[in-house]
Structures are given as C-alpha cells and as structure tokens.
Design a protein around this nucleic acid. Sequence first.
DNA 1: TATTGTTATACTCTATAACTATA
DNA 2: TATAGTTATAGAGTATAACAATA
Lengths: 156, 156
Amino acid sequence: MATQERPATQPTAEDAWALVWQVFQADKSRRWKIISDFGLTPMQGMALGVLDAERPPTMSELAAHMHCDNSSLTGVVDRLEAIGVAERVPAPGDRRARCVALTAKGRELQARFREAMRPAPPHLQHLTADEAAQLHGLLRLAVDRHAAASGEDAAA
Amino acid sequence: MATQERPATQPTAEDAWALVWQVFQADKSRRWKIISDFGLTPMQGMALGVLDAERPPTMSELAAHMHCDNSSLTGVVDRLEAIGVAERVPAPGDRRARCVALTAKGRELQARFREAMRPAPPHLQHLTADEAAQLHGLLRLAVDRHAAASGEDAAA
DNA sequence: TATTGTTATACTCTATAACTATA
DNA sequence: TATAGTTATAGAGTATAACAATA
C-alpha cells in the first residue's frame, strides 16, 4: 500500500483530526454513563481525575488544568466538598490561595474512577496490539514535540 | 496477552486513548474561542456543524447524533432558530416529527464555521505529512472496523 | 399502546463583573 | 497595584417526568 508514489491526496493532519473528533464524540455517551454511575457530573469527574493526591493544586492551578474559569471551579469544588471527596486546605506560603486536596474517601474514589475511565473506547479496541502501539507512538511524537516547542517558546 | 517478540512493554490501546484525551483536552480553549467568535455555544456549534443541508434530520435523529436527550435539544434548536440559523419544518410522512433545516444564513454560517473548525490543533501540526497520514490511516482502520462490526451486529 | 416532541422542574456549568483579603 | 478566590448574576446545557399529538 505505502509503496505507491506519494499521492496528491495523502490524508493530512486535518483529516486525522476529523477522525479523532469522530471517535471522541462517538464515545461521549459511554463516558457520561461511567461518570454518572459514580454519582458525578462531567466537570466533577474531570476534577477528580486530574487531582494529584501528592501535590494538591491551588484553585487557580486546577482551573488552568481544566481549562475553565476560576469562578466556574468554585461551584465544582463546592460540590466535591459536599460529597466528602475533596477539601480546601490553606496553601503554604500564600494566605490568599487555597489548595484542593483529596480526602481519604476521595483517594479511594479516584482510584476506582480512573480504573473505570481507563479502557479505550470500542473504536480503538478494534485495532491490533501492533496498530495500537503505532497509534500511541504517533500521538506520543505529537505530544512530545509540542511540549518541546512550547518549552522553547517559554524559555525564549 | 500478546506473546510476541515485543513483550508486555508495548503501549496498548488504553495508552493511545490517554494521549487522544490529552490532545483533545489541551485543545479545549482553542475550540471554545472559535465557537464563541461565531456567537455560538458549544452545543449550538455542534448542531451547526453536523446539520445536513441536503437532508434535514428530525429532532430525534439530531439528538441521537449529538448524544444528548431530546428535551435538551429543544432549547438548543430554539436558540438556533432565534438567531435565524435554523428552522423547524414538518417531517414528510410523520406529522408528529419535525425536521431541523438550515436557513440560507445558516448554510452560509455553516460553511464558514466548518472551515474555522477544520484545522488540526497545535499538537498534530507537529507531525510530518507522512506521520499525519499514518495517524489518519490507523484511525480510519478503527472507525471502519467499528462500523463494520456494528453493522454486522445490527444485521444479525 | 408506542413514539415524537415540548414543557416543567431542578440542577450544573459558564463567564463577567464586583468584591475581599492578601501580596 | 496586582493577584487569589468568592459571590452575584444571567444564561445555557442536562436529564427526568408529565403531557399532547400522532402513529
């Protein structure tokens, strides 16, 4: 297949992105089901998924990580506190800031939640082990190069 | 597992999925910016993006395509009608159903919107043309095999 | 009786602006 | 002055349940 002359119609990054989108969207209902089975909403699930038990982030850091506004995060963390999953603790070195820490219940829930969210969606399960590894390799290239480029930009 | 020359250290579909997630999340702010520049919300943008000008779907069909409830879609289409982008028309052959059709303004906006949403995010732009084509090929395999398997399931 | 779509309800997410406490 | 976080506000998305019209 790949031994042909390079066709003018070779799929581009845009074409690949369209399929990424398609796979992600098709999996939307499955993800929502898992999240709601844990008694969470999508944003609560995202917060639980990204919180670092070892290094509780400040509200601002967590908001940046979740790509939402600080004021939006207030309610999300309020609800995580209400169900006993997280708690706000003072930030060392800055009395304005508050860190979001997992409770014992939160750490237990996080472990089970991450486990439930880990499996690849049905689409990707149709790949062979080698194909999956190739897919991972290409995405790893993209992520690493982007990180390197961003790092250089930041350092410049 | 796969008892091959490449042992248990080979990245799996789960690992690839984790990177898909990472790329998609990292691009969240960029997508939101584009959508809001069009005066739309995410759900309105999704509806505008998937609506077929040639074959207006019913409310139920559109809701299924968007993976949301019928009742949630009512408000979304209400707002698209309010800004003159879409309109509800009678469904041929079923007087209960209503189809969502694009207006002339809607078709024009859709063309510009799809164009704005087409570019791949920064992460994927770091791939070479060949790498992007490989990525597309792997995702195409996943999507096609899933469609085939689903089709067989449905036909069975 | 089942389906299509809307309405009513209650809640979550969303950002902007104003506000406080602190840096 | 600038920053971290909350509150107030207004709007949009979310599903469930109840409902009307139609199949």
